[in-house]
Design a protein around this nucleic acid. Structure first.
Lengths: 336, 336
DNA sequence: TTGAAAGCGCTAACAA
DNA sequence: TTGTTAGCGCTTTCAA
């Protein structure tokens, strides 16, 4: 069952390849009867264009890469889902790249385009530094996700992490909490994102006339839920007094809930908890989790739009787009 | 900055394209000095092969599609993660297709290959019937995931759902439970998977001398966590007596936990709960969730292997591979 | 072992 | 409006 080619259709319809191509690509100026004849041949033969050949001829692959630390994470899963959806509607396919936060993998991502694999890349870096990105970036259409310290030349979509953290902390303060902890720093992880969230957290405290207490800035050993659990357990056992926790993501918040309950304390009565990402996790915990909610759909849509413009040949300095966020209020930190 | 092509390297190294190609592809019989000369030219010019051109020439894309209902689901996310990992190691890229359980989208999946997009497809169907799959299947290398009523001609990887459900129910019975509910049927959803799980559930009951009570086979309105919550709430309010629940997935189990707690009952003391998938959700709930654990890594590895053989030209009848499962015991249904 | 040249299937100038 | 033809960059016979 040899594949049907464009030229086979042309022969069958007694026309040139060009005409068939015009019909296939929906070119406007084709005589109706001609079009009908070609279409008939296409249908009879069951012709489907070979995308690889088209790509080689046009230089466009019709694919974009989505590179992120782990696809198996509620936040990234949601982002991937939105992006796959949006890209598909616009006629693009998405290939996934899981970097697992490995610096080598992150570098490899930026070289895919060179290999002619994809037309552009949407990338959430965790390990790569600004300079490396700028160096490897070249003329590859690229949009960065998340609050990285992005090169000025690169497009970039994020939420306002300072404001979001401020809003989260303010929500806790509005509940009358005065010993608000920030659970977000991971040993050896000094990302821009965290620095900005910490800043927002502090701003909120100061704004309420509270002096930030370094003992309330909690550090974990790793990125897993149980690392957060351990951190909270240690803090509680260590006599750190706290009545609220703002967490770097929902997984951490879930871990915090577990630790708090293990101490026989109640959420939110004794300690209110806010997560981050507004992922599906918020519905699985007890109590349900109040969470900082980035507008993920917007994030994905804006990232795609920026990338699309670049792929269309847009040049110019990097654009930085801020997407709205909200505090999704649930039981772990109810409305005041 | 025009791209460096094979021919540029050839000129630079004063050899033919063939020789450069041999070096690039690691062909054995190349004189060492020749190889060195070519390699030098490659490095100097920073040559990278154009994958699209290679594909057109070889007819292989080096990509596989992974098609599943939703990438944003803990189980599928994990599967995607494993598969991306395995495929990458074997030199393949994965493109994701989200069908959202839409019949049209499922059909489209099987036609990607025709378009020369991918060399093969790993597909977890939910809507498509055996016959449709067989019809569209053609000679497309295809491996099915999950216990579908697969065409005999198609490869297929799954766990033994009858045995897994039996094991889950048996675990609950071993805890002394006698009113074990099955929360798995969704209105209008009559998948093979569920039928087989229901069968295993009944076998376990009968094996313990218990007569299955139809009132304990619970139906939900949809696939979300809150649908499960509603179902359990209704059952409890309706006076259905139960002391254990076997759920179709962890999300349902999470919903069940919520409903049980809302009634003021305790897990596992009053009602033990078992989920399915052994996803990350199991760690976020209170109490943590005992769950049927398919060997997801094996599932992915076997699926890839079967697909790889097909892509290498293997023909022959469909192979059905059973992958091990276990009961991952946690607090919601502890060991007896 | 290496070279020359013919495709792979399509698009896009350029002609007609 | 439609036809002709030269690429796109690589692999792969077939010769040398």
């Amino acid at each position: 069952m040899a594949r049907v080619r464009l030229i086979d259709v042309a022969e069958r319809a007694q026309v040139s390849m060009k005409t068939v191509s015009n019909v296939v690509n929906g070119y406007a100026h084709v005589q109706p009867d001609m079009r009908a004849r070609v279409q008939a041949a296409i249908d009879e033969l069951g012709y489907r264009p070979n995308l690889t050949a088209r790509r080689l001829a046009t230089g466009k692959t019709g694919m974009i890469a989505l590179a992120m630390p782990e696809i198996d994470h509620p936040y990234f899963g949601e982002m991937a889902s939105h992006l796959a959806d949006i890209a598909m509607q616009r006629g693009y396919r998405v290939i996934i790249e899981q970097t697992l936060s490995d610096p080598e993998a992150e570098k490899a991502v930026l070289q895919d385009r060179e290999a002619g694999l994809v037309d552009g890349v949407i990338f959430q870096p965790t390990r790569m530094a600004t300079l490396d990105i700028a160096r490897l970036h070249d003329d590859l259409p690229l949009v960065l996700l998340g609050e990285v310290d992005a090169p000025v030349t690169t497009d970039h979509v994020m939420i306002d992490n300072v404001a979001a953290a401020r809003d989260g902390a303010a929500h806790l303060l509005a509940l009358g909490r005065r010993r608000v902890a920030f659970l977000g720093l991971v040993d050896g992880d000094i990302t821009m994102t965290n620095r900005r969230r910490l800043l927002g957290y502090q701003e909120a405290l100061v704004g309420s006339g509270i002096r930030p207490d370094p003992a309330l800035v909690l550090t974990t050993r790793g990125f897993e839920s149980h690392d957060a659990e351990t951190a909270i357990t240690l803090a509680l056992e260590g006599g750190v007094e706290l009545d609220a926790i703002l967490c770097r993501d929902d997984r951490f918040a879930a871990g915090a809930l577990t630790a708090i309950r293990a101490r026989g304390l109640r959420v939110p009565d004794d300690i209110a908890v806010i997560g981050w990402d507004d992922s599906a996790i918020t519905g699985y915990t007890t109590p349900t989790l109040t969470s900082i909610a980035p507008d993920k759909r917007q994030l994905a849509a804006n990232a795609f739009d920026l990338l699309h413009e670049r792929m269309q040949g847009h040049h110019g300095p990097g654009r930085h787009v801020i997407v709205p966020h909200a505090v999704a209020v649930r039981a772990s930190a109810p409305r005041a």
